[in-house]
Simulated scan of single mutants.
Amino acid sequence: MPAPRKYPDELRERAVREVRATGRPVAHVAKDLGIHKEAPRTWVRQAEADSGERDDRLTTAEREELSQLREENAELRRANEILKAASIFSPRRSTVPGRGRAGDRPPA
């Protein structure tokens, strides 16, 4: 579960909209809104990535997909470890007929 956000979405959207619409420096907009200057700077960069203006960052959709794939990968790794551990306890059988356990050999 992600950590709760420090600033509400409305404030984020307002800051991004103001920086992009007015062209004012991010630090001035942040001061007017009473927030740390790096917060809106990050939000503006992410908005630019989402709109295709930046290629150096993942879009929000790509970040969500990456997070989902990492979770799925971790779950598959856990399942694989469980299956490996369970296979230690199962009897082994040869793939060659007549080469399994002694009780599995066909009568001569």
Rank of each mutant, 00 (worst) to 15 (best):
E13L: 15
T42F: 09
T95S: 10
V29H: 07
L58R: 04
K37D: 12
E81R: 10
A86M: 12
E48V: 05
A108T: 05
E38T: 14
R70E: 12
E71W: 01
I82R: 01
M1Y: 06
T59N: 04
A74R: 09
E10Y: 03
R105W: 03
A30Y: 10
G52C: 05
W43C: 09
L76T: 07
H36S: 12
R17T: 15
P25D: 08
R17Q: 14
F89S: 13
I88K: 14
R101W: 08
A47C: 13
G100F: 05
P2D: 11
S51Y: 00
E72N: 06
T42D: 11
T22F: 06
R57W: 11
L66V: 08
S90D: 05
S87M: 11
V96F: 08
E71A: 14
E13Q: 15
A108R: 00
E75P: 00
V19I: 14
E64G: 03
A3H: 12
K6Q: 14
V16W: 11
H28L: 06
L66C: 01
L69P: 00
V16T: 14
M1P: 12
F89W: 09
T59M: 03
A47E: 06
P91V: 05
T95L: 07
G23R: 04
G52R: 01
R70Q: 12
T95M: 01
R77Q: 14
P91Y: 07
K6C: 10
L33T: 07
A3T: 13
R77P: 00
R5F: 12
R93S: 14
A21Y: 01
P8I: 12
R78P: 00
Q46I: 10
L83Q: 06
H36E: 13
A21D: 15
R41W: 10
V26L: 02
P106D: 01
E18Y: 01
N80C: 09
R5K: 15
E53D: 15
E72M: 09
L76E: 07
P2T: 11
K6Y: 14
T59A: 05
R57E: 09
E10N: 08
Q68F: 03
S94M: 03
G23E: 03
P25W: 01
R14W: 07
G23L: 02
P2K: 05
A49L: 06
A49M: 09
L69Q: 12
R77A: 15
P106G: 06
G23Y: 09
P106F: 00
S51K: 04
K84W: 02
V19S: 06
I35L: 11
G23M: 08
P8N: 11
R63Q: 06
P4D: 00
S87C: 04
P4M: 02
P97R: 06
T60W: 02
R77G: 00
S67I: 01
L11I: 13
A86Q: 13
S90M: 14
A86H: 03
E71Y: 00
A61N: 01
P107E: 02
S90R: 15
K84E: 13
